[in-house]
Amino acid sequence: MERNLMIAGFGGQGVMTMGKLLAEATCEATDLNVSFFPSYGAAMRGGTANCFVVISDEEIGAPVSYALEDLVVMNGPSLHKFLPTLKAGGNLFINSTIVTDEITRDDVKVISAPVTQMALDINNPRALNVIMLGVYVGATDAVPADVIIKGIEHKFEKKPKLIQPNIDAFNMGLEIGKAQK
């Protein structure tokens, strides 16, 4: 079983970090095959950024897919650009603080969370991506939640103060995701 995810947003929203955290944690804590593929523009800052994560129990073919099981959109332009690439019956994750446009498809499942606002509310504005990762894992069970917890612990090994706040942010998203499952 193969699962294709695209995460898209503005540069600076932690889109790449979210994809990498999911993929790296999956590599470390499971026997699954996993790939991470970033897609940048030519400019170093600003503009849109997106990445692909494929998780599979078989060999992975293309690390890039335009027939997605899951799509995370962190900003408005990404919704319009990438919504057509989501498969019928796929999961659309919306950062509802920023993405307020109408969803023009009714054959996909919409899971929304105001992750930008939530991150501001907990005084951790950069954690919007970790909250969204929680939402994603909670709604899909793509990997067990403790895989990501371990991943966070590993990622912040050298900055231990950041471990608990990020786990908290992740769990916050996880609950929202589970509720919308």
Binding site: E24, C27, S35, F37, P38, P63, V64
Partner: peptide, 9 residues
């Protein structure tokens, strides 16, 4: 460039 930029175990 796919293999160069993609991450895998």
């Amino acid at each position: 460039g796919v293999m160069g930029t993609m991450m895998e175990p």
